[in-house]
Design a protein around this nucleic acid. Structure first.
Lengths: 125, 125
DNA sequence: CTTGCCTCTGACATTGATGTGAGCTTTTAG
DNA sequence: CTAAAAGCTCACATCAATGTCAGAGGCAAG
């Protein structure tokens, strides 16, 4: 498929797809006229890349991990495995932090609701 | 306390504290000479602001929520409560997404480890 | 008073992913 | 064949939080 279709299927913008290629995250074969062509597998790949972006990984980090995804081997797995473990831990910590923030928001909302009740009771109750 | 101490206590940079003030997230009293002064409560406030930043809220969003924190009242609570609920949901979705990504990373790591074992067994086993 | 550290304002720089527009070529549909 | 739609490259713009630098003033200790 060409770039427009890949964009439509993944939700990524065409600009982003070209950027991913520039960063070495995504490869394409070129037609004689220079147009990029992709396989169905690239849809999954882009989805995965987006997932990692959402997780806060930079393209530099992602590009370090992808070799491990592409072709796990002695050479790349040791370094990439360590990197992945590191990012996994960072992600875990981030999730924990976000959970605490969510709890804090819940607490605030409870306070706000209680306040509203307090103000309404003398009128409504 | 002055800005340097607040920065040291919260881990925020002095630059960031001034930026928070510029965005309406943090207030300070000024000495005659114009220097900012803060109370102990501001340490907590800055910590909370940082927490929301970490959660991906923009300063624009945070500034909408803070009135509710400062002085819950009829006027601000309805709108802010809705905003908070909205952000809470967004945060929940984000946490879920990150959890899925963590799972994906775990899966990749398992694959990589398995590969490594496969490669090593003929030699080591 | 001077030295050293802290603070002030204001402005410009940075980073990373993405938007946007120009100018041109390719592909597709009628 | 022609016009519309899609792609290409290159380059500049954007956004948000923060870094950084310059030039000036504040404040405590010697």
């Amino acid at each position: 498929m060409r770039i427009g279709e890949l964009a439509a299927r993944t939700g990524a913008s065409i600009r982003s797809l070209r950027y991913y290629e520039e960063q070495g995250l995504l490869a394409s074969t070129r037609s004689a006229s220079g147009q990029r062509h992709y396989t169905d597998d690239d849809v999954e790949r882009v989805t995965f890349i987006q997932r990692l972006y959402t997780a806060g990984l930079s393209s530099r980090t992602i590009v370090e991990l992808l070799p491990c995804v592409d072709a796990p081997s002695e050479e790349n797995s040791d370094a990439a495995l360590e990197r992945m473990a590191q990012e996994r831990d960072r992600l875990s910590a981030h999730i924990a932090e976000l959970s605490r923030t969510r709890d804090a928001l819940d607490g605030l909302m409870a306070t706000a609701r209680a306040h509203r009740e307090t103000l309404r009771l003398p009128v409504a109750g």
